[in-house]
């Protein structure tokens, strides 16, 4: 049998494939249904928060930040409650990260405010003098992509049964409704900010990236 396998490239390849596919089948697949269950009371992201998550992805904050509080006292003291699987049920993709050049952000909404973020994202050193985090001033001028965020919400609602428009849940509605709702949310955040360009943009019906990003970070609790 072995002689034959060594000389038959096709069946050799099949053999290799079985051996390598085996592990994935056993470890990854069977837990799917179980690990995807949301914790009780978890609401899907609003469109504005999704747009903020997109900014987080676009600028790869995961290069330096994790979103996973591990079950050690030193971590729960520092960041807050241990992370649970069900809290991530609506995270596509997951954003746990693999490197903490900066602190964990999974509970950041509990202890940092809109105006703290505003100063920090404009110039981290103004808040933490020896910070090595880059300043993200372009977030104050670039406009967030609310349409794409809406498209994402529609997609996950349609394909993955994410419970938008459920009673007591996050409302999605039509494209126009969603845009209006995102703008309302943005106005509240911009009301707590000082930057003139940001305030002007929101007054004109546009949402700068920083506003969406802050909406997302405020939601991480």
């Amino acid at each position: 049998m072995f002689h034959w396998l060594e000389k038959n490239p096709f069946f050799f390849a099949v053999g290799v494939f079985i051996v390598i596919a085996f592990a994935g089948l056993i470890t990854v697949v069977p837990d799917f249904a179980q690990s995807a269950r949301p914790v009780a009371g978890l609401k899907p992201y609003t469109v504005l928060e999704l747009a903020g998550k997109e900014v987080y992805k676009k600028d790869h904050c995961i290069a330096c930040h994790s979103q996973l509080v591990r079950p050690f006292k030193s971590e729960t003291d520092r960041y807050g409650q241990v992370s649970l699987s069900g809290e991530y049920a609506y995270d596509r993709p997951f954003l746990w990260g693999s490197k903490r050049t900066g602190p964990d952000l999974h509970r950041i909404g509990n202890y940092r405010t809109t105006d703290w973020h505003e100063n920090h994202m404009w110039n981290p050193k103004s808040v933490v003098p020896t910070s090595i985090m880059p300043a993200y001033r372009h977030h104050f001028t670039n406009i967030a992509d609310i349409d794409t965020a809406y498209a994402e919400a529609v997609t996950v609602k349609a394909l993955f049964a994410t419970p938008y428009d459920a009673p007591n849940g996050t409302k999605l509605g039509s494209h126009e409704e969603a845009k209006a709702a995102a703008l309302e949310e943005a106005k509240v955040i911009a009301g707590n900010m000082k930057n003139k360009d940001v305030k002007d943009a929101v007054a004109n019906g546009q949402v700068p990236e920083i506003v969406a990003l802050i909406a997302y970070m405020n939601r991480l609790k």
Binding site: D31, S35, A89, D91, R92, D147, A149, E152, A158, L159
Partner: peptide, 25 residues
């Protein structure tokens, strides 16, 4: 997402089929 939503938003954008812990695995 562009195709599922019927042509809304950026055509390059996509969303992962897996979520949270599954995605991590």
């Amino acid at each position: 997402t562009y195709f599922v939503s019927g042509g809304i938003g950026n055509i390059m954008h996509s969303v992962s089929m897996y979520s949270g812990t599954n995605d991590a695995m």
